[in-house]
Design a protein around this nucleic acid. Structure first.
Lengths: 137, 137
DNA sequence: GTTGACGTTTACGTTAACGTAAACTCCTGC
DNA sequence: GCAGGAGTTTACGTTAACGTAAACGTCAAC
């Protein structure tokens, strides 16, 4: 395995705002809005924003948060858990607490999803039964 | 097992709005709002709202939807899947499609949660390592 | 007979998360 | 040398999901 083969999976070194908007099917306005709210911090070439692969990952995390019903503030809090910019002990303790809370919330969501899945099964069964009955008449 | 023993688990036959508000830790205003939006339809004694056990279940479903990041419209759509008031074949087909969509969404949320859980584990590990390091100094 | 506690309607206010539009800059192609 | 396209800032508009407040009804308790 050569060094070249190891860096095989091609990946742009940077992205424009409209590239990201297209990829994730959101508007450029939304992306700028996330920056306003402190969730993104792209580099600038003159006035133009230039997004690094890391910025792109952060954007993915934001959108995942949205799918889970998190607010932007919550998503930022979660993203902040990743970088190790937490110097003192107290901050780290708070971070661990925060992680515990998120875990609890996610477990609740898991239970909610499982309940809902089961109920969707039943609803589907009823609908199919009702369909069968309607067709027989 | 007598008939009396079978109906053993005591359960109020009705609830006031403030009882429900207390139980679920929401305001009465929110409950009335859900009614405005067509998600609840409590009986009335004069002007006063009286909530049946079924109304209470619907409220629980609404709140579960909220925890999963659903809008009130989405929650209403889900709740509507339960009652078999769907007469004709076309409606039932649409219902089945709707159920499929919800299932897909829930599966996506499951994947999101699993990713996030894993990342929380890593974040916790890093935090604990960092803590250990800080204490050793 | 009035005072709370609880309920009601009506209406305006608020926050989050963008959408939409105007007016401008910069660069590229022809 | 200018038209078009992509980017920018600034600012006002919009929707969902309630909060908050005012003004009122009702009923048991003192």
């Amino acid at each position: 395995m050569t060094a070249k083969a190891a860096t095989n999976t091609e990946q742009p070194a940077s992205y424009s705002i409209s590239e990201l908007a297209r990829e994730f099917d959101i508007t450029t306005r939304a992306i700028r809005f996330y920056e306003d709210k402190g969730l993104l911090n792209p580099a600038r070439r003159g006035q133009t924003r230039i997004y690094s692969p890391e910025d792109r990952v952060r954007l993915k995390l934001i959108l995942r948060g949205k799918r889970l019903g998190f607010s932007l503030d919550e998503s930022r809090a979660i993203i902040d858990m990743y970088d190790p910019a937490h110097g003192n002990v107290e901050q780290l303790q708070r971070l661990l607490q925060h992680i515990e809370q998120k875990r609890a919330q996610l477990n609740q969501q898991l239970r909610d999803i499982q309940s809902l899945m089961g109920e969707l099964d039943e609803a589907e069964a009823r609908a199919r039964a009702s369909l069968k009955h309607n067709i027989e008449n």
